[in-house]
Design a protein around this nucleic acid. Structure first.
Lengths: 144, 144
DNA sequence: GAATATTAGTTGTTTTTGTAACTAACAACG
DNA sequence: CGTTGTTAGTTACAAAAACAACTAATATTC
């Protein structure tokens, strides 16, 4: 039972994708976890608000492809940590505009630089064209 | 606060990797979940035993890069479902040789075919050279 | 060969996630 | 208007993952 006709597990793209995603995420994790005590979803929410400015939780759900319960909890956590503040909308009190506090902006700026550097190191092994192919393939698979 | 000098979230490779990994994994999930009631780790363990033959739980941990507690629970679950059996080693009773039952082999064969087809469809959009680049980049990032 | 260290694997506890049900605010339609 | 439907967001509960502590078997070292 040594099915050599069967293809290898590393030939199965979803498996390879998971290994690569896990490895790179775990390597980057200390940057937001150890320094700012954030969880991954919190870091994503922070990044979104820092990069694209004020928006509602729903906007983050749609843009970041994160479920609303996860966003809800991440927003609450970031609020407790004073990285983010809410402003209720007068005309529609269902949703609140979310924006970063000064501390939030500072954290974003810092992490943004760190993320840039991290990415540069991660991509250093590859040529420009390889990077383009990688990005295009991933975007297509993720249906972006 | 619209940091347009900052790079986009989709330019951050770990983020893109995670989106692609999640998307493809979720698309494939029904194949082992709905038909065989397996969890992702169980499917990975099954695949390992089916593809590479009899081995111990430790071997699976090392090869599949899964933590021993996850493997332990997956093995127990697969045993309950009669997909796998253990054989204690006489000379070292600490570890047990794991192998698939007839039902386990059947499930593996089926899923192997399905996985192959799934991968073919996923890769259909890309040229041979793009696929090679993708595979090589992912393997490198995953430190395989 | 008794004491200590190491290895394989399990179990228990805590976090985190996923799912579903819920509340509150608004919109639409008669 | 009031009934019904929809949307934004929260909360409660169940499933899964992460982490630490543990057991049992074997190796090592004095």
């Amino acid at each position: 039972m040594d099915n050599s006709d069967a293809f290898d597990l590393t030939d199965f793209t979803p498996y390879l994708l998971n290994l690569a995603a896990e490895t790179s995420s775990l390597d980057f994790q200390p940057n937001y976890k150890d320094t700012y005590g954030m969880l991954r979803t919190e870091w994503r929410v922070l990044f979104h608000l820092g990069r694209y400015g004020t928006m509602t939780a729903k906007d983050i759900c749609d843009r970041a492809r994160v479920h609303k319960t996860k966003v809800s909890r991440a927003v609450a956590a970031l609020e407790v940590k004073r990285f983010l503040k809410r402003a209720e909308m007068t005309h529609d009190r269902r949703h609140a505009m979310l924006s970063l506090t000064t501390a939030g902006v500072a954290a974003f700026r810092d992490l943004n630089v760190v993320a840039r550097e991290f990415d540069a190191i991660l991509m250093a092994d590859f040529s420009k064209s390889e990077r383009d192919v990688l990005r295009r393939c991933l975007a297509k698979i993720a249906r972006l």
